[in-house]
Design a protein around this nucleic acid. Structure first.
Length: 118
DNA sequence: GATATGACCTGAA
DNA sequence: GTTCAGGCCATAT
């Protein structure tokens, strides 16, 4: 019988990461490390970046993913940088000098999901 | 197989 | 507030 269509670890990781990114509600932001941790792969923040850079998944709220410092992962002046800032502002996130103001990348996604409204 | 690169993270100075 | 070094792992050459 044909072997199971078991996907490669990278495939599963990608799927989990995408799900974690989609789990971030609008107006909120998360860090790469948090996404990787929530996906079940702690310490693989670079993998998250690698996946987002692929941009295979349309409709993915990649703009809600920032660095742990709350700064934009893109270099200032870059197209991605500008686009991400614009999208965040459209969701009500205050962005100043390429950094998110008022709410850093939450230490844990639980903090985001459990964060009290206003 | 080895080296270099990348939308990174953490801790320490 | 910033900068530096070490770690992590998939992809490209």
């Amino acid at each position: 019988m044909p072997r199971k269509p078991k996907e490669s670890p990278a495939q599963e990781l990608r799927r989990r990461v995408l799900e974690a990114v989609r789990a971030v509600p609008p107006g909120q932001v998360a860090g790469y490390g948090e996404i990787s941790r929530r996906a079940g792969y702690p310490g693989r923040a670079r993998l998250v970046a690698r996946i987002l850079s692929a941009g295979d998944e349309p409709g993915l709220p990649w703009h809600r993913v920032l660095r742990s410092d709350g700064r934009i992962a893109f270099p200032p002046g870059s197209a991605g940088f500008d686009e991400q800032v614009q999208r965040l502002r459209a969701e009500g996130v205050r962005v100043e000098s390429g950094r998110v103001r008022g709410q850093r990348a939450a230490p844990t996604l639980d903090q985001i999901l459990w964060a009290p409204p206003d």
